[in-house]
């Protein structure tokens, strides 16, 4: 009977692990392959996000998507992937040059899940696998936009990339990095006009309030044991990570945002 009990407990643990890893794996910075809405609907939504940003004069802005049901995410986390969109001259395969936004992402590598790559894609790619057609948009003050553009155009954003990936990366040190921390690092590089990582991390510790990940230590421990892209080794005390919402609050707190909204498929823009 003891054996049966042990097996039962093991199965329960495994299912907890499944539930946990399911939430976090899908909360990661991954590029989607399966469209969940009609392609033309996604394309229209993506275009409307571009038009909204353009209407606000955004040359560079922070954009976020919802990759899975919010109810499946840790409490308070509303978006699953964050990146920076930059107004660009886009050369098409035909040679034609058009204007629109290119999105500069840190994506988790599918083959090595504890590694990441910097990848440029476009709004329809960004929202392709979105669970919900809702965009997080934060437009920084114009001078920060200008610095972000300089950072990306010069390629210095690559200096800020740490390919060691974990879903719950602490933004306060440079042990690991996820998509949102990379976005925050780029933002701070623009704000402080430096790519000195030690300086950026010191500034983050001093001024940025990360979002607490409200989940049990047991689940975190189990996730760390089962998933190569989950670790809490870079955290001290409570697990906190950078999120789209915490970045929005950061910019609002220091009066560095000109506009911060969520935009839904019906073009309702709700202030954050």
């Amino acid at each position: 009977m003891m054996g049966v009990k042990k097996q039962f407990v093991t199965i329960i643990l495994a299912f907890i692990g499944i539930a946990f890893t399911g939430s976090y794996v899908q909360a990661g910075s991954q590029q989607h392959t399966e469209v969940r809405h009609k392609p033309e609907v996604v394309a229209t939504f993506a275009k409307n996000v571009e038009k909204y940003a353009a209407s606000k004069g955004a040359r560079a802005f922070i954009v976020a998507r919802v990759g899975r049901p919010v109810k499946d995410l840790p409490k308070g986390i509303k978006f699953t992937h964050t990146a920076i969109a930059v107004y660009s001259a886009i050369t098409l395969g035909s040679g034609e040059v058009v204007n629109g936004y290119a999105i500069h992402n840190l994506y988790q590598n599918a083959d090595s899940r504890n590694r990441s790559d910097l990848i440029v894609d476009y709004p329809v790619d960004f929202f392709w696998g979105a669970y919900e057609l809702k965009a997080g948009i934060v437009i920084p003050k114009p001078y920060i936009q200008g610095k972000l553009i300089e950072l990306i155009k010069s390629g210095d954003n690559r200096v800020l990339h740490n390919p060691k990936y974990t879903v719950l990366a602490s933004p306060f040190n440079s042990m690991y990095q996820n998509c949102t921390e990379h976005t925050l690092d780029m933002l701070n590089a623009a704000i402080y006009d430096t790519t000195n990582i030690a300086q950026l991390k010191a500034n983050t510790q001093a001024h940025f309030s990360a979002q607490r990940v409200k989940t049990s230590r047991f689940k975190l421990l189990l996730g760390s044991a089962l998933m190569e892209d989950i670790t809490t080794r870079d955290h001290q005390g409570k697990v906190k990570t950078a999120t789209f919402t915490s970045i929005a609050h950061y910019l609002n707190q220091y009066d560095l945002a000109q506009n911060a909204v969520t935009l839904d498929a019906n073009l309702n823009a709700i202030d954050i």
């Binding site: 038009k51 353009a54 209407s55 606000k56 004069g57 040359r59 560079a60 930059v86 107004y87 660009s88 001259a89 886009i90 050369t91 098409l92 395969g93 035909s94 034609e96 058009v98 204007n99 290119a102 440029v120 476009y122 437009i139 003050k141 114009p142 001078y143 936009q145 200008g146 553009i149 990306i152 155009k153 000109q258 506009n259």
Partner: peptide, 26 residues
């Protein structure tokens, strides 16, 4: 259409415009 390359657009004279003033018509 597929993109080959995207180049950030530089703003002549820097960015110091007031919020929302750039593209109201759009």
């Amino acid at each position: 259409a597929s993109a080959v390359v995207a180049v950030p657009i530089i703003v002549s004279g820097g960015l110091s415009l007031a919020a929302g003033s750039a593209a109201t018509a759009v």
